[in-house]
């Protein structure tokens, strides 16, 4: 159990996909215009990550080694399409806001990376936990980036006014995404460095 717990927590901090591995930068920058959007994107990715990890770990002995990458891509893109359809049916506003970035979960290097590096070598249970850990780490990072941008750019958190009169719009625009992520990464490094 201790080992499994470690797999899970590693994904959150030590292997945090955004701040440490620097993977999946496109959705991190593009969809974090508000805390809610960032979280929505994170959860969608989490779902795809866990499901594809499970399925790929299940199929790891069936898939021929030479065509494993195309096979992974097929599995991942199927789950992405499923997420896309489910979101369209039940959370249509979020679906419209995230737009083209939902299908783009397919090319999020985190997912293919975990499939190749972890799920293809480990059991179902461990793969699911790995997906959950990394996915939650990703969701958390996206939510934090979204919160900072929403607060500085709009004076709101999750759509609630924190102060009146908005903020510096630049943080909502794409330059702000680069700035916030860059500075947060410095802060994250500083914090984790101290722990060690």
């Amino acid at each position: 159990m201790g080992k499994n717990l470690k797999i899970f927590t590693d994904g959150l901090l030590k292997n945090n996909p955004t701040f440490v591995l620097v993977l999946g930068m496109c959705p991190t920058l593009a969809t974090t215009t508000s805390a809610f959007n960032g979280m929505g994107m994170g959860v969608a990715t989490l779902f795809v990550l866990v499901m594809s990890n499970v399925v790929i770990s299940l199929l790891k002995n069936v898939i021929p080694d030479k065509v494993r990458i195309p096979a992974y891509i097929v599995v991942i893109s199927s789950f992405v399409t499923v997420v896309q359809l489910l979101m369209q049916a039940y959370v249509q506003d979020l679906y419209n806001t995230l737009g083209v970035f939902i299908p783009l979960i397919v090319v999020n290097c985190i997912i293919l990376g975990r499939a190749e590096a972890f799920a293809s070598k480990n059991g179902i249970w461990a793969s699911a936990l790995d997906g959950l850990g990394i996915g939650l780490g990703f969701t958390l990072s996206l939510t934090v980036v979204g919160m900072v941008r929403e607060l500085l750019g709009n004076g709101q958190l999750f759509g609630l006014d924190i102060w009146q009169g908005g903020g510096a719009l630049i943080f909502i625009l794409s330059p702000g995404a680069f700035f916030v992520l860059g500075y947060l990464m410095i802060v994250f490094r500083k914090l984790t460095a101290k722990k060690n």
Binding site: L173, F179, G182, M185, I186, R189, K190
Partner: peptide
């Protein structure tokens, strides 16, 4: 040290993005 690599690249990209605006 803490800024080296990706963080400084991101901040540079931010300034470039502002220029492109």
């Amino acid at each position: 040290k803490g800024v080296k690599g990706v963080p400084i690249a991101l901040i540079t990209a931010g300034i470039l993005a502002m220029a492109f605006m």
